[in-house]
Amino acid sequence: MTPKIKIQTTAMDLWYDQFQALKAIDIAIPERAVTAFIGPSGCGKSSFLRCLNRMNDFIPAARVDGQVLLDGRNIYGAGEDVIALRRQVGMVFQRPNPFPASIWDNVAYGPRLHGITNRRTLEGIVEGSLRGAALWDEVKDKLRSPALSLSGGQQQRLCIARAIAVEPEVLLMDEPTSALDPMATARIEELVRILKEHFTVAIVTHNMQQAARISDETAFFLNGEIVETGPTQRLFTSPRDGRTEDYITGRFG
C-alpha cells in the first residue's frame, strides 16, 4: 500500500533577489512518516523547510515559483491564509526557543492565540501536549516554573509540546538536536518516532546517522537541487547517484 502524500512540490524554485536558492524541487512527502532532508551546509535544505510553512515570507526579497501542494491545495495560491497554514504546519527550530515565561504559558500560547480561553480546556491541551512530547512526567509538578529553568533537551521537548498544542498536521523540524547532548538527542529521536504516528514529520539534519535512524524517506540536497530521494534504507545502503554516495561516505560536505 502506498502511503498518502501529504505535501507535494512541483518545479518549486526559491529566489532571493537574483540568487536562486532552490531549483526545480519535486518531492512528495508521505503522510504520517518521517522525511529527512540531508545535505551540506548552504545546500538549501533549511530554506526548503521554511517554504513549507511560508516562514520565508519574512524575507522581503524571497520569492517562490512553482507549486507546493498541501493536501492538494497550493499554499502559495491566491487567497491562502498564512496564519491558518502555519497552524496546520508547525515548526521546531534548531535552538530550543521557549518564551521567557512559565512552562504552562509556553504550551498554552498557541491555543490562546487561536482564541481558546476556557481554563479547563487549556489545562487539558497543556497536559496532552506535554504528554505528547514525553515531557509531562518531568514537569507536571512545576508547570508554573520558568521554561528557561529546564535543561536544553527538556526545552526542546517543550518547544515540540508547544508546537503540537495547536494540533498541526505537519511538523517541520530544523536540525532540532544540533544544540543538544547525545542523551537529549536520543530522547528527541525516540520522540520523533512516536510523533509520526500522528503527524507528518519533515526534518532537516546534519547528522546522517540520525536521518538513517529516524526517517522513512530521505532527500539529498546539493546546491539548491534535490539530487536523490528514496526510502531511507535504500538511500543509505545503496544510493543511486554518485554525489549522494560521495556525500554520505564523507568524500565531501
Partner: peptide
C-alpha cells in the same frame, strides 16, 4: 565510523 553506502556494504 558508522559507515554508509559503499563503505557499509
Amino acid at each position: 565510523f558508522q559507515p554508509m553506502a559503499q563503505d557499509l556494504r
